[in-house]
Amino acid sequence: MKDAFGAPQSLLVLGGTSDIAQATAHRLVARRTRTVWLAGRPSPALEKSAESLRQQGADTRTVAFDALDPEAHETALGKVFAEGDIDMVLLAFGTLGDQARDEADPLAAARVAQTNYTGAVSAGLICARALQTQGHGSLVVLSSVAAERARRSNFIYGSSKAGLDAFTQGLGDALHGTGVHVMVVRPGFVRSKMTAGLQEAPLATTPEAVAAAIETGLRRRAETVWVPGRLRLVMSALRHVPRPVFRRLPL
């Protein structure tokens, strides 16, 4: 169960090797989390992530999960929920793709969409139903500032996140009053594996900062969290910039 501060005792991460998820899991294990499930594509990295949480004292298990294989989601995630209540699900998997290459390779572009959007729709619905049956729990979804307005430089990724973001908001409304809390997290540029080697954007932040914002959001039962918080203002301004101008902004 979550406590008065929204701190969960059990956590399921979808995308177990994600840097942001790792930082969040470590932060929550330092509080009340004692049981962690890391779902992800089997790899030494996944095992390593699990091991580092075990080191910290959390009973951690891994489960095979591929966003691109929705047929298998029900079985993989069903097994986790069958073992006991999950107080928080962190949907962290995602892929940035390579905009320039993907524009020329529609199949690769579709994989970005399938990972970030349809994979999340399927996994999100399964988790939502399980949480609703429990009558409690938080579903925390890592969206992105890129979801707020599609940009020339990464609209394939951006549009997939926009879909995910809209899906999550709707799901949150659908689950209103069921005891389940749904939270959309919109980080800006985060220094992680995903952005390694890329040029930093203004207001760049860290996985630890995202983790801290998630912890606060849980306490407040927030529906939307921006990281850093100032992005909320920046994006509400950018949203209204006319297309001809927006197109030419160096974003």
């Binding site: 979550k2 008065a4 409690h136 009053g177 005891g179």
Partner: peptide, 14 residues
């Protein structure tokens, strides 16, 4: 319905 205690901190449905 969602149910919480007097402190209104952790509502859950029952």
């Amino acid at each position: 319905a969602p149910v919480s205690g007097w402190g209104r901190t952790a509502p859950t449905a029952a």
